[in-house]
């Protein structure tokens, strides 16, 4: 097998080991280097973000200028992008003249999309049995209904009996137990995913 990007691999392993050891070992030499590397990674992530955003702009520009896969909606992306970027660069991102773009366009659209998801979720719950008929789907739906009722506050009235309140409190333990098991498993998988990078087995940066 051809060794892919040996220099990049050495950088990833070296930097990763220094940062990891900086977390684990209380050595005065390692801690400042770890902090420095983390600071640099914030800068690099920001530059990477900027490069990706410029790529996104280029993609939409290509869509309005190409005759083969023309997408006129991309014009709205371009206009929105240029207007916000120009005003933001001119006055700063927190300026009064930039804020309405966020408050009256970005936030209402985001809230509406989340609201729209309510319909998606309810419809999905109804059609779940058509999608996958299994006992697990049955328990999932039953649990959804029980916790929807519990979360809606219908049992919080003064007339609710003490028994129901205690049953609800007991029911809350079940998802906590399952969540702990799932989270522990994800942590184990994460450790090994990180280790594969530090051992040079996974090299997503290599070209």
């Amino acid at each position: 097998m051809v060794m892919r990007s040996p220099v990049a691999t050495a950088i990833a392993i070296g930097v990763g080991l220094i940062v990891l050891l900086g977390y684990l070992l209380p050595l005065p030499v390692l801690d400042p280097i770890r902090r420095l590397f983390l600071d640099w990674s914030i800068i690099l992530a920001a530059v990477a973000g900027l490069v990706a955003i410029l790529n996104l702009f280029k993609a939409h520009w290509r869509k309005i200028s190409s005759s083969r896969e023309r997408d006129y909606y991309s014009l709205f992306f371009i206009l929105g992008f240029i207007l916000t970027a120009a005003l933001g660069l001119l006055f700063g991102p927190t300026d009064e003249r930039v804020r309405p773009l966020i408050m009256s366009i970005q936030l209402p659209v985001e809230a509406s999309l989340v609201g729209l998801l309510t319909i998606t979720f309810v419809v999905s719950a109804v059609r779940l049995f058509a999608l996958r008929r299994s006992w697990m789907s049955g328990i999932f739906l039953a649990s959804t209904i029980v916790f929807l009722l519990a979360g809606s506050g219908v049992f919080l009235t003064s007339g609710t009996s003490q028994v129901i309140k205690e049953v609800l409190a007991a029911l809350n333990i079940l998802p906590a137990a399952g969540a702990r098991g799932i989270l522990l498993g994800i942590a184990l998988g994460s450790v090994l995913t990180g280790l594969r990078v530090l051992l040079g087995m996974d090299r997503p940066y290599s070209e």
Partner: peptide, 11 residues
């Protein structure tokens, strides 16, 4: 630089 970011990320 991507290798740098991935290395930090792994740690």
């Amino acid at each position: 630089p991507m290798a740098f970011l991935v290395g930090v990320g792994a740690a």
